[in-house]
Simulated assay, not measured.
Amino acid sequence: MVAYYKSPSASTDEAAINDALAGNLCRCTGYAPIVKAMKQALATKSDHFDQQEQTIKNRLETFLPRSSCKISAPAGTVSLPATVEELASIYQDNPDATLVAGATDVGLWVTKRLNSLPHIISIGSVESLKALHETDDELWIGAGVTYSRAHSAIATILPDAGEVIRRIGSTQVRNAGTVCGNIGNGSPIGDGPPLFIAAEAILVLRKGQVTRSLPIEDYFIAYGKQDRQPEEFIEALVIPKPDKNLLYRAYKISKRFDQDISALLGVFAMTCNGDGIVTHIRIAFGGMAATPKRAYATEAAILGKPWDKATLEEAREAIQTDFTPLSDVRSTEWYRRQVAANLLTRFFAETATPTIVETRLAGWKDKAYV
């Protein structure tokens, strides 16, 4: 709540306060007194938080490296490069080292799996990798950009992606976890990759002084295997600005709404011409295969056809051939297959026909009720 109080967007709005509290599980009194106290603090603008801020900043300054450094101990080594050139050089000299950005995933390897990581290279001090900028055509997200920093920029061009990102972990996790780190670990249930596959994003990979570009869907080869050469790392993600007529929807399915790993995530990006014929379609799913994956057969069943119920039924059948999902603790194979087809129907309902509200409003207007 101190961090929220100090943020430019802080307000007494209860929903906003609840969002800021997400990730903190209170097991004693509940949240009501905390929310009430926060409203009071924001309304009165107490200077207590201000008095603490400089002390915290002064302490942090002593821990922030100004140049590259290496910390060694009997348990292992941590390298902290200050530039991307130093990062590339250190990684070439130590190809078996573990790269971390926010360490929201790798940290669990240590605390939960009890893995030993002899050499860690952290990119947290590489300022150039924290670049977040956009042009008329694209959005560039450096490998060190956190989800919190990227959220607004991504949501501006892909609103549904922004809503999914709001549900990735908690505020604390999004403050540490990076967009590119979520891609780099290659998880089949990471929420970021399907969002960006559907949006035709490109990865920029670097090895030494050499860079190459790769469509993000080609990065994922098999479970635990990515198209990343030894000593190569992700430098940035580039998202092209979508066509103004693009219909983009993202649906995250999980056992609870907030802070839960997806059972599956479906993302749809489609453009139709004036006659209602589909001229562009990309469909990506997470949680349906060993990697984040496009639904190629489903896309083929839709492309070049009118976006009508007949096409929808063909697509629902085709999606059963695109994936062979597993049954696990989050859901069964049957459930994943059924929900994937149902998300197609939801996408159809939202993009091919008026919504229920629009239909009712039209009816009321016709009857002069409004």
Rank of each mutant, 00 (worst) to 15 (best):
T359A: 15
A3P: 08
I17M: 08
L64G: 04
L247C: 09
F233L: 11
W109I: 05
S89H: 13
R294W: 04
R66A: 13
V126I: 10
I121T: 02
A155C: 07
A269K: 00
E127D: 15
I120W: 02
Q338R: 13
P242K: 00
I183V: 06
E127H: 13
V164M: 06
I221Y: 06
T77E: 03
E313V: 04
H133V: 12
I56A: 10
C180S: 04
K130R: 11
P325F: 02
L247E: 07
V35A: 02
L246A: 09
M288R: 02
A349Y: 12
N58F: 04
I165R: 02
G142W: 00
L42V: 04
R206A: 12
N18M: 15
F323K: 05
K305H: 15
C69E: 15
A97D: 01
I154R: 01
S122K: 08
T104L: 01
Q226W: 07
G276D: 10
S170Y: 07
L87A: 10
I261T: 10
S11W: 00
R337P: 01
Y335F: 09
G276K: 07
A22V: 14
A341L: 04
I123E: 01
G190M: 09
A161D: 06
T104A: 01
A315G: 07
T156W: 10
A295K: 00
K367G: 14
G23S: 01
G184L: 01
K57I: 09
W307I: 10
T211S: 15
R149G: 09
A43G: 12
D275F: 06
P118K: 06
C28T: 14
T98L: 08
A41N: 05
L139T: 05
V357L: 14
L114R: 11
D308V: 02
H280N: 14
S7T: 04
Q209P: 10
L108R: 01
P65I: 03
E333M: 13
G192S: 03
Y31L: 05
R212L: 10
S67A: 12
Q92G: 01
D105K: 02
S46T: 10
I239V: 13
F348P: 02
I302K: 09
C26V: 15
I183A: 00
V78Q: 01
V145R: 03
E358C: 07
S72L: 05
Y5T: 05
I34D: 04
K207E: 15
I71R: 06
Y251H: 11
D258E: 15
G30I: 07
T211N: 15
L80V: 05
A82D: 11
K244M: 12
I120L: 08
Q229E: 15
L139W: 09
S148C: 11
A176F: 00
S72Q: 13
T83F: 03
L132T: 07
V110C: 05
L237W: 02
A349D: 14
A75I: 07
Q209C: 11
V84G: 13
T171A: 14
G363S: 14
S170M: 04
Q229N: 12
I34R: 03
E358S: 13
L214M: 14
P159H: 05
T135P: 14
D218F: 08
A103K: 03
A352R: 08
S89E: 14
Q54I: 06
E53R: 04
I183Q: 00
G124V: 07
